[in-house]
Structures are given as structure tokens and as C-alpha cells.
């Protein structure tokens, strides 16, 4: 059985968890296995039908009021209990900030190695293999597993969502015990960042700016584009972040976030090796740069040599036109 951890934020199932579930279902079909999904929290059982639409034979909601806000040790504790009981062959997480926090904790408790941030899963000779970027995407490593359970986190925005089908599985709520000393790292408060509805790792389109933007106020020009482009977010180079023009949450690159959106738009970004490492796996890249020799233009599918301040206004108008069609 493949067990998929389903992340819930603000009462909603994370899309990237459903991507993982869809991927798990595809591999399970090849391996002749079943997929179970697990939710952790309090009062989440109502989300089960949505989850089972993506192929979970059974959706288990581990429930305790102490789990109503996230704590890595508490969540790992109850998941470890479930894993010991069900003995899944594979355990998959989404590589979001929660998945990356929780999966290693569970892995260590179960005493197994973990493959982080995988971008591909395949079945070869009846065994599961995963591929993951290393050196921020400057190389890819493929792994086999010598024993079960196999544990991996899968990168968001990489695996296609399956087609939802109603009424596929059962739901089960389980009340679980959580010792007080297992929730010492419980989240007290979530502080939302102003205007950041979508994180760059989750966005389908990233509109990114670099030192060429010349100041924080000009990032508004990029924000205007994200207002008209669906599922988009503002990204930035490290230089723009270090200059204090935008929060480091938006930084893309080797010491920022690794992203693979459908579209990456780079304005006034030179394309240093550390920046390219974080965004080269974007499906489509376009760039505007006044320097014809800028490395970003070598990886762009479409590049404009020109002044971003002159290109941005007509670009916005043209985008508006095609989006309103």
C-alpha cells in the first residue's frame, strides 16, 4: 500500500497533496497496490470525499484537539503510530514547508532514509525509483530503495493532477492519543504576509524582478501583472532581496526557492548561476534585459533585448487583451 499524507492549511486540502496522491495512484496501478490517504488535525473528516476523488481507497483522519494547529513532533508521533500499524510499502509527502518539516521527523522515527523533493517517480522491474535534483538542479540523482517503507517528498507543481472521480473510497475518523510532551513545538500563531496570497513555489506563473528594477516601488509594476495573470506570484533575484526591495520569501535560486512554474518571466535579472539553478526547470521562460549578453537570455524561450521600463506597460496591455478573449 502507498500511504499519502494530505496537508491541510486553513481548512483546505493543499493542491500539491492531491498531485502527490494522483502520482501515487499512477504508480500503485503499475505496482498492483492500493493508495491510502491520511489527514492529521481536528475535525477534518469532511474533507475525505474530496481526497478520495483522486484515488484513495481509504481516507483516514487522525483526530485530536491538540492537533488543531500544526506541530511537527505531534503530527509525526501519530503518523508513526499509523505507519507501524498499516506497514505501508511507500509513504509520500508533498515537499511544501510542512512536508519538508514533517517527513524527515517521521522518517527518523521509523528509522528509514528519505528522498527529498523528488521530481519523478517510475517503476522499474517492479521496483519504485525516484529522481531528485541535487546541487539546486545542477544535477539529477536517481535512487532505488533497498527496503520498505520507501519514503519520499515530491515537489509541488511537477506532477499532474488526476481526473477526480466521485465516491471511490471509504473515510474513517480515528481519535488518537497525543502526549503533552509531543506538542511542545506547536504553532501558536500564523502571521500572514501582506499581499502574498500565493507562494512562488505554488504559483503557475512567476513574474520576477532583479536589480534592473532599480527600486522597491517598481516591484508594483510586477504586482500589477500578477493581478491580471491567474495563479501568479512575484519572484525576485537575491540582489533585489538584499537591496531590501522585497521580502526574501520571494527569492528564487540556490539560496532561495526552487521553482518549476509553467511560466517564468524575468525582468532585469542577469541570470547568475545561483539564480538559474532555482528556476531552470520552469516549463517556459521569458526575459527582458537590456544586455544582449545576459545569461538569462541563453535559457529563455523568448527574450527581449530592451529596457524593461519601456516594455512592461505595453506588455501589460497586450496580456490584458489576450486574457479577456
Amino acid at each position: 500500500m502507498i500511504l499519502v499524507y494530505i496537508e491541510v492549511r486553513e481548512g483546505k486540502v493543499k493542491k500539491s497533496s492531491l498531485e502527490v496522491l494522483s502520482e501515487a495512484k499512477r504508480r500503485a496501478n503499475e505496482l498492483g497496490q492500493e493508495v491510502f490517504a491520511v489527514l492529521v488535525g481536528h475535525g477534518l473528516e469532511s474533507l475525505a470525499p474530496k481526497v478520495s476523488q483522486y484515488g484513495a481507497k481509504k481516507v483516514i483522519a487522525l483526530d485530536n484537539p491538540l492537533l488543531s494547529s500544526y506541530s511537527p513532533s505531534g503530527y509525526a508521533h501519530v503518523l508513526a503510530g499509523l505507519c507501524q500499524e498499516l506497514a505501508p510499502e511507500c509513504i509520500f509527502f508533498t515537499a511544501t514547508s510542512m512536508g519538508k518539516d514533517l517527513a524527515p521527523r517521521l522518517a527518523a522515527q521509523l528509522g528509514v532514509s528519505l528522498a527529498s523533493d523528488c521530481i519523478q517517480t517510475t517503476v522499474k522491474d517492479g521496483n519504485l525509483e525516484v529522481k531528485r535534483p541535487i546541487y539546486a538542479g545542477k544535477a539529477f540523482a536517481t535512487f532505488r530503495f533497498k527496503s520498505s517503507p520507501i519514503m519520499a517528498t515530491l515537489r509541488p507543481n511537477v506532477f499532474p493532477l488526476g481526473t477526480p472521480v466521485d465516491g471511490q473510497g471509504d473515510a474513517e475518523k480515528r481519535d488518537v492519543a497525543v502526549p503533552e510532551d509531543q506538542v511542545r513545538d506547536r504553532v501558536d500563531e500564523v502571521l500572514k504576509e501582506e499581499g502574498a496570497d500565493l507562494d512562488v513555489t505554488e504559483a503557475e506563473i512567476i513574474v520576477a524582478g532583479g536589480r534592473g528594477l532599480k527600486g522597491s516601488e517598481n516591484f508594483d509594476m510586477l504586482r500589477e501583472l500578477t493581478e491580471i495573470l491567474p495563479h501568479s506570484a512575484v519572484g525576485a533575484s537575491r540582489s533585489a532581496v538584499d537591496a531590501g526591495w522585497i521580502d526574501h520569501q520571494h527569492q528564487v535560486g540556490q539560496t532561495g526557492k526552487t521553482v518549476s512554474p509553467n511560466l517564468y518571466m524575468a525582468f532585469g535579472i542577469s541570470g547568475a548561476i545561483q539564480h538559474l539553478a532555482g528556476m531552470s526547470s520552469s516549463k517556459v521562460i521569458v526575459a527582458v534585459n537590456k544586455d544582449a549578453e545576459a545569461p538569462i537570455l541563453k535559457v529563455a524561450d523568448f527574450g527581449i533585448v530592451g529596457d524593461l521600463f519601456q516594455v512592461l506597460p505595453p506588455l501589460k496591455e497586450e496580456l490584458k487583451k489576450v486574457l479577456s478573449e
Binding site: S280, F302, P314, L315
Partner: peptide, 27 residues
């Protein structure tokens, strides 16, 4: 439990179109 089977370089990106034109036309 992890056995490294293969290391590879990322697929090289195909060179795209780069244009230099009036801002309106380029956009």
C-alpha cells in the same frame, strides 16, 4: 535504504528566440 542508481546532468534548454525591437512591437 537509498541506493544511488544514476547521476545525470539536467537536460540542456533549447536556445529560444531573442528579439530587439520597438517596445510595443516586442511586447
Amino acid at each position: 535504504q537509498l541506493e544511488l542508481v544514476k547521476l545525470e546532468s539536467p537536460p540542456a534548454r533549447q536556445a529560444g528566440t531573442v528579439i530587439e525591437d520597438e517596445p510595443e512591437t516586442a511586447a
